[in-house]
Design a protein around this nucleic acid. Structure first.
Lengths: 115, 115
DNA sequence: TCTATGTACCTTGCAGTTCTAGGTATATGA
DNA sequence: TCATATACCTAGAACTGCAAGGTACATAGA
């Protein structure tokens, strides 16, 4: 399928934050989770993800610290912060608004109970 | 509210094409329709819209011709083409996919019947 | 007749972003 | 010892979006 560049950009931040809501994680695992969640339709490269993680950290939405895998390879674990949770809620609200607007023209709607 | 830059970019093309599905229109009117549809939450400037219209025309999704308002002012009327209708359907499909992916994490879903 | 407001369209330029391409390193299994 | 998977990082070329600025005319009101 291949999702449009603009739509991928719009999804990037909420997707990473939402994944970190499931529990702390690290770059390589996030990359695999994205592929899994989108059934392979989102093909992020690591070169796209790492700069995003750095930016989210700079913005205070996530917090990072070094750890290690069971085999001893270094990993940089990320967890979502309070600011990140607030940001995610805001993005969710915006996404719903956008989908409502388009949905009105397209003939579908997000159920009110889901919002 | 103020919607995020990336989300605005992702909505732009489908929104314009969907508005033109309602019937041919022109720049200034499209701008007002966008405000109306989003209940004022999307504040596009004309400096954003006109380049977009030109791009969509270049891509063959819309067709333009000069006309005039009842008062005699020139207007550039746009109508959606077959390619534009196909593109709109594709974008709709992508939007639904994206919303499903995020919706799975966020706990809402687009009803299957609406797709 | 002058001014303000709404209608209507257009483009340049640069500030900002993005992601491709390239790099490092280690564990495991064949 | 070679290939593959894991794991992370960055420089900078390439792109792009949109704020700002420009033109023009109709109408209403002072």
């Amino acid at each position: 399928m291949n999702i449009d560049k603009d739509l991928v950009a719009a999804m990037a931040t909420p997707l990473v934050l939402a994944i970190l809501m499931e529990g702390s994680s690290y770059g390589y695992a996030i990359l695999k989770r994205v592929r899994e969640l989108s059934s392979g339709e989102l093909e992020w490269t690591d070169g796209m993800l790492y700069p995003l993680l750095h930016r989210l950290e700079r913005q205070g939405y996530i917090h990072a610290e070094w750890g290690a895998s069971p085999e001893g390879r270094r990993r940089r674990y990320y967890q979502i912060t309070d600011a990140g949770r607030a940001q995610l809620a805001e993005q969710r609200r915006q996404w719903v608004t956008a989908t409502r607007t388009l949905g009105g023209l397209w003939g579908f709607a997000i159920p009110a109970t889901g919002v």
